[in-house]
């Protein structure tokens, strides 16, 4: 099965200059935890996830501790998030893995597992975002 047969044709996305609080609002309203980032032409340029934003809001020493046990409360994270709110998502987005419309399911599943991705964007020959494939889209197809 090819990407075009598996993908959700949902183009919910943000642009690099979308502000973090706007991206959080879109995630909240749409129920999506991952948003593709597209340029003015609709071409995929990155991805922004809830995880990226939480990670960016955590204190730097958290990387070493790997636990929030040492944090007294969420005030520090909240303060940091409020500072991030009016910054563009381009400051926090990641480089993105994508697949093409005619890529095979095995290749897509491999990418999702190896790169620990929840979803992967699908692009056409010119790099336009045309859909997304979630892990659950492959799982549900395989289990039928």
């Amino acid at each position: 099965m090819k990407a075009r047969d598996l993908m959700r044709r949902d183009l919910t996305s943000v642009e690099p200059d979308t502000l973090v609080h706007e991206a959080v609002y879109i995630m909240e309203q749409s129920g999506l935890s991952t948003l593709p980032v597209v340029d003015e032409e609709g071409k995929l340029v990155g991805i922004i996830t809830e995880h990226d934003l939480i990670q960016a809001a955590l204190p730097e020493y958290f990387e070493m501790l790997h636990s929030v046990t040492f944090l007294p409360n969420l005030n520090q994270i909240q303060k940091r998030l409020k500072e991030m709110a009016f910054k563009p998502v381009s400051e926090y987005m990641k480089e993105v893995f994508s697949v093409h419309l005619d890529d095979e399911d095995l290749h897509i599943a491999d990418l999702l597992i190896r790169k620990r991705l929840k979803q992967i964007p699908v692009v056409d020959g010119e790099g336009h975002l045309v859909g997304v494939i979630r892990r659950i889209d492959i799982l549900s197809r395989l289990i039928r």
Partner: peptide, 16 residues
């Protein structure tokens, strides 16, 4: 949205 996606329509909506 779910109904549209199931019917093969590409959706590009603004969430409010």
């Amino acid at each position: 949205l779910r109904d549209l996606l199931e019917k093969g329509v590409t959706a590009n909506f603004v969430w409010i």
